[in-house]
Amino acid sequence: MRTFAELLAEGEAVPVEGWDFSWFDGRATEERPPWGYVRLLAGRLAGAGSVLDVQTGGGEVVREALERARAHPAVLAATESWPPNAALARAALAPWRAEVAQVPDDGPLPFPDGTFDLVSSRHPVLVGWPEIARVLAPGGTYLAQHVGVGTARELTDFMMGPQPVSDVRSPARAVAAAEAAGLRVVDLREATLRMEFSDVAAVVVYLRKVIWIVPGFTVSRYRRRLEALHERIVDSGPFVAHTTRYLIECSRDRGPR
């Protein structure tokens, strides 16, 4: 059995750029939502002439959808705030001649009004509803999978002590904000999903990668709690937490004829 120190060192050394989670195979699992976001996105891509993927990470998700799609948009663009991810996205989406703009998550989208038939996003950190509505063409669609309320709260509470659960990420708030921006919600689905961590190295990589679960996480700062978590996994088996996800699809009306 590997020691706590060995697992900790491994967790600190793993690169965390992009949204490729293949390193976790055999170390952690996360149940997937029943609606199949990539499959849905692939279907929408086939019928869209111009597409924007917001907060694309390393472009992995939209690339997979593009590889599945029967047809590809003539115009493809993406945004990403973190420079290492933006570089990965440019490489991943180069076969589709995508424009990848590096912009802050809370900043304006650098595109003219009414540019895109489809705006997509998987797990955006922030959702700029007015900007999404602005860049959508009349009749255009926003299709996204959002992180919901209380995701991985069991892990947050273990590391930080009991924390209040905010409703900022609730579907109800998203619907209200979308409608306030002039969009019409046409689909909304929610799911609570099981996740398991089989060793503490997987926890370290996850918390380094998904930075909002334990804000300000570093191994040195949380070493004692990580050691307690390691001992718990050794004694009792995988650490279990739950994620929440919701699919939201909105339409920008065409307006009066």
Rank of each mutant, 00 (worst) to 15 (best):
residue 7 L to Y: 05
residue 9 A to F: 06
residue 9 A to K: 13
residue 15 P to E: 08
residue 20 D to Q: 11
residue 20 D to L: 06
residue 21 F to I: 08
residue 25 D to C: 04
residue 28 A to R: 07
residue 30 E to R: 05
residue 33 P to H: 13
residue 34 P to N: 09
residue 34 P to D: 11
residue 35 W to H: 11
residue 39 R to L: 06
residue 41 L to N: 10
residue 41 L to C: 09
residue 47 G to Y: 05
residue 49 G to V: 10
residue 51 V to E: 08
residue 55 Q to M: 12
residue 57 G to Y: 07
residue 57 G to P: 12
residue 60 E to A: 14
residue 62 V to C: 13
residue 62 V to E: 14
residue 62 V to I: 15
residue 70 R to Y: 06
residue 72 H to P: 01
residue 81 S to Q: 07
residue 81 S to C: 01
residue 82 W to L: 12
residue 89 A to L: 07
residue 92 A to W: 02
residue 95 P to E: 02
residue 97 R to W: 03
residue 97 R to Y: 03
residue 98 A to I: 10
residue 100 V to E: 02
residue 102 Q to K: 08
residue 105 D to Y: 04
residue 106 D to W: 13
residue 107 G to K: 05
residue 108 P to S: 06
residue 109 L to I: 10
residue 118 L to K: 14
residue 118 L to A: 10
residue 120 S to H: 14
residue 124 P to G: 15
residue 128 G to S: 06
residue 130 P to V: 00
residue 131 E to G: 08
residue 136 L to C: 09
residue 136 L to R: 11
residue 136 L to D: 15
residue 143 L to N: 05
residue 145 Q to V: 04
residue 147 V to W: 01
residue 149 V to H: 02
residue 150 G to F: 10
residue 155 L to F: 08
residue 155 L to C: 07
residue 155 L to G: 12
residue 155 L to P: 10
residue 156 T to E: 05
residue 159 M to D: 10
residue 163 Q to P: 12
residue 163 Q to K: 12
residue 164 P to L: 13
residue 165 V to W: 07
residue 167 D to Q: 15
residue 167 D to K: 01
residue 176 A to C: 06
residue 177 A to W: 09
residue 178 A to L: 12
residue 180 A to E: 08
residue 182 G to W: 15
residue 184 R to F: 08
residue 184 R to N: 11
residue 191 A to E: 15
residue 192 T to H: 03
residue 194 R to L: 11
residue 195 M to V: 06
residue 200 V to F: 01
residue 200 V to Y: 00
residue 201 A to C: 09
residue 202 A to Q: 13
residue 208 R to P: 05
residue 213 I to N: 12
residue 218 T to Y: 15
residue 218 T to R: 10
residue 222 Y to R: 10
residue 224 R to G: 10
residue 228 A to G: 02
residue 229 L to V: 02
residue 230 H to S: 15
residue 230 H to D: 13
residue 235 D to P: 01
residue 236 S to F: 14
residue 237 G to E: 13
residue 239 F to G: 10
residue 239 F to M: 06
residue 241 A to R: 00
residue 242 H to A: 00
residue 243 T to L: 09
residue 244 T to K: 04
residue 249 E to D: 06
residue 251 S to V: 08
residue 254 R to L: 09
residue 255 G to Y: 04
residue 257 R to N: 08
